[in-house]
Design a binder for these strands. Structure first.
Lengths: 131, 131
DNA sequence: CTGGATGCAAAGGGTTTGCACGTTT
DNA sequence: AAACGTGCAAACCCTTTGCATCCAG
């Protein structure tokens, strides 16, 4: 890993992220940052966000890879995603815990909650063997 | 909503999805289906997948919209996504239930589980008022 | 001074869409 | 026959990347 310097743009990006609750997109940050750096380029925002995620200062909210995946198993279940090979595996759920999970949040907020999804991340059996 | 017919391509897509556990990408399905329909186009696969998702025959595995979102709040928490306006809201977690959730899965599989994420979906307060 | 960072623009990669033709009902 | 579905290719959209220049250490 290379050494990262403290560019003004990067520092401002962290500031912006720490001062908002809107979970911005890269473009939102770009628009906001443009006021400070009129010549700012979107590429700079993306490069810095990637660095900030890499160094653990920022979290990226995403599911799996950039492309969608599909399944015909319609009943409720969780998913496990292997961080090594990308495989997605269905997981049975413990209904009792699952219900408690949703109840705990429902009773604690004014949001109208319809459903929830859970993903587990780690290494699958196959990849465990191959390392 | 329009009436959907039973095109051969669409029927095969459901068949394929029901017969596999790999949670395929659109492209994976395209490659597989090409054996039956040599002139198949990727657009057809995408169109049909969207129809199947719309009619509830297939689930799409994704998180939020197509673009990533970022946050500087690094500590563990859940997210709520408003299905109406796309807003993402941080949710506190009940550590006890959260731990039980991870334990339940860990004890029930040979996968090496490192972490998990939970998202809740529904309608936010603002959108509830505006309807 | 040296290597990382930036701006700009082009390229990438997954997904959507307009159009003319083919198929289902 | 009418309306939906398909193939093809172009268009889209978000993100990445090559390159010359700029700037932090």
């Amino acid at each position: 890993m290379s050494d990262y310097r403290n560019s003004k743009q990067r520092l401002r990006i962290i500031e912006i992220l720490k001062s908002t609750e809107v979970h911005p997109t890269a473009d939102w940050i770009y628009e906001k940052l443009k006021k400070d750096f009129p010549n700012l380029s979107l590429g700079t925002v993306y490069r810095n966000l990637n660095i900030l995620v890499e160094t653990g200062q920022v979290d990226r909210l995403e599911f799996g890879k950039t492309f969608d995946r599909f399944e015909a198993k319609i009943d409720k279940h969780y998913h496990f995603i292997c961080e090594s090979c990308g495989t997605v595996i269905d997981l049975d759920i413990d209904r009792q815990i699952d219900n408690k999970l949703e109840e705990a949040v429902k009773n604690n907020t004014k949001l109208k909650i319809k459903t929830h999804k859970v993903q587990f991340y780690g290494i699958c059996e196959k990849c465990l063997k191959n390392k």
